[in-house]
């Protein structure tokens, strides 16, 4: 029996007994409320709200889901929370203004983008020590790490680059220009591809990881929305890497893109200024954080339809799943 079920049983016995075994939670950071909201993926309701440090943005779980890492940007720290109690266990040094981060496959090292400092900080989550600080471009934000753990990526919003970091030496080995204001990066297809979204450029760029060269670019066109307002931010792949869902910011749409042909197949209307997203356990539902409207849209992945809107805190930003 998993931990969340244990918790549910102990807290609210009647509901927990009725819940199917696929129960899971989506954790959402509320940037301007200094809280995280916990959404039950079955009932689609907010079941908990926990206080955090100031301006929480990036959010991710440890591999075993016993620790939650939160970028508390204006507290200049990464907080470690016990997701079973909401208690902040410790503050990790993070460098100034941590915005996003990524947990290395070793489950130990966090690669953190320090937005105000043009630095990527590497922190050992066990010892709480800063392992390295790497100079990158202005306003680093997007963070990714390859599945084999050998490469970390930082994208810098004002420098408009993807910086390729060798995780053994923690040094840059390549810097590739992308379109304006890169916001998010992900490795795809066993790490052979690296994708970057450009908010102001309005594009997704696909890189060949081995050569760090561009192999494709995706553009968007939402009917009735001026191209300037179609601004790709967060994106997530389906487990088979067949489809990528892309948050298009103030156009208030999510695009479903064929990750092989790079064709946009569908635009799904969600809440206002959509930032990031996360799947539930079996990837049948997608939860999007809508910054301006202060809610989360639940998309049925099979039908590609928005099925529910869940009110959370003010300016929801990041999202993470735990079973």
């Amino acid at each position: 029996m998993n931990k969340s079920l244990t918790k549910l049983l102990s807290l609210i016995v009647p509901l927990a007994l009725a819940a199917p075994v696929t129960a899971g939670e989506i954790w959402v950071t509320n940037e301007k409320d200094d809280t995280v909201s916990v959404i039950d993926t079955d009932t689609l309701e907010v079941i908990q709200t926990y206080p955090t440090g100031e301006r929480p943005r990036g959010i991710t779980f440890s591999k075993d889901f016993t620790r939650l890492y939160i970028c508390a940007s204006d507290s200049d720290s990464v907080q470690v929370m016990d997701p079973n109690t909401g208690e902040i266990l410790r503050d990790l040094p993070s460098g100034e203004d941590p915005e996003q981060f990524v947990l290395h496959p070793d489950d130990i090292h966090l690669y953190i983008a320090n937005e105000d400092d043009a630095i990527t900080t590497v922190v050992n989550t066990q010892t709480g020590e800063v392992v390295a600080q790497i100079d990158v471009g202005v306003e680093p934000e997007g963070m990714a790490v390859s599945p084999d753990g050998k490469i970390a990526i930082t994208t810098s919003e004002t420098t408009n680059m993807a910086h390729w970091i060798n995780t053994e030496t923690n040094e840059l080995f390549a810097n590739t220009l992308v379109d304006s204001r890169p916001r998010h990066a992900e490795f795809a297809k066993q790490g052979t591809e690296m994708w970057v979204s450009s908010e102001i450029g309005g594009t997704l760029t696909v890189f060949d990881t081995a050569t760090q060269t561009e192999k494709g670019k995706i553009e968007f066109e939402v009917q009735g929305v001026h191209p300037d307002r179609v601004q790709p931010v967060g994106f997530e792949f389906t487990p088979d890497y067949g489809t990528v869902f892309v948050a298009l910011g103030p156009s208030n749409h999510i695009a479903a893109v064929n990750a092989e042909t790079y064709e946009v197949e569908e635009y799904i209307l969600v809440g206002r200024r959509v930032w990031h997203m996360e799947f539930n356990e079996d990837h049948s539902q997608l939860f999007t954080t809508n910054g301006v409207s202060g809610d989360v849209t639940v998309i049925d992945v099979a039908s590609r339809k928005a099925v529910k809107t869940i009110k959370v805190g003010r300016f929801p930003w990041g999202a993470a799943f735990r079973p």
Partner: peptide, 10 residues
């Protein structure tokens, strides 16, 4: 300063 930060990679 923003230009210089970008420029150093190029």
């Amino acid at each position: 300063a923003d230009n210089a930060t970008t420029g150093r990679f190029l």
